[in-house]
């Protein structure tokens, strides 16, 4: 065995301390009290069409970039996009590695390799990206999330990989 025993960072606690030090009121984290919904996987992933939704502020060259204050918009990125046309912009993480290799927050090459090797059946035609760090949980719940669900459903996704940052 190894001696690696690091405790995962408690970002809720870190944020509380940061906000306290700034004199801000506490951040209102989303707490879901009800049990999560459950949709069983009914076929092998090698027969599934997989969607990708990522919150790292990823846009394609030529698209309008995200802004940093409560941006609840999303971008549509084709799953056959040339990887070198992808960009990252965000206020809440160090984007240097994402700008150097977008797969760290938007694993499009990784997913395409899994499809090539038939680990996955395929990808939806489009992937979706947004900004995250949105203060209004209501806007996410009532606007952004339903729009993404509708998009994913219309794309025939059997399952979606969600990649927050």
């Amino acid at each position: 065995m190894n001696a690696y025993e690091a405790t995962p960072v408690d970002y809720i606690e870190v944020t509380r301390r940061t906000y306290d030090s700034l004199g801000y009121p506490p951040y209102a984290w989303v707490h879901s009290e009800e049990p999560p919904p459950w949709t069983p996987l009914t076929k092998p992933l090698s027969d599934c069409r997989i969607g990708l939704i990522a919150s790292g502020g990823v846009y394609r060259r030529g698209q309008i970039a995200f802004h940093y204050r409560d941006d609840a918009s999303y971008r549509v990125i084709p799953s056959d996009v040339p990887t070198d046309e992808l960009r990252a912009t965000h206020f809440a993480y160090d984007t240097r590695d994402a700008r150097s290799d977008i797969n760290v927050v938007f694993p499009i090459d990784t997913l395409r390799s899994l499809v090539r090797d038939s680990r996955l059946g395929g990808l939806t035609d489009d992937c979706y990206t947004f900004m995250g760090g949105i203060y209004s949980a209501r806007r996410v719940r009532e606007e952004l999330a339903p729009a993404l669900v509708e998009r994913m459903t219309s794309q025939g996704a059997d399952a979606a990989l969600l990649v927050p940052v």
Binding site: G56, H90, S100, D101, N103, V104, V105, P107, S113, V163
Partner: peptide
């Protein structure tokens, strides 16, 4: 660390 949810850079 944040910003690496799906891996380390240039490590396919």
């Amino acid at each position: 660390p944040l910003g690496h949810t799906t891996g380390q850079a240039h490590d396919p």
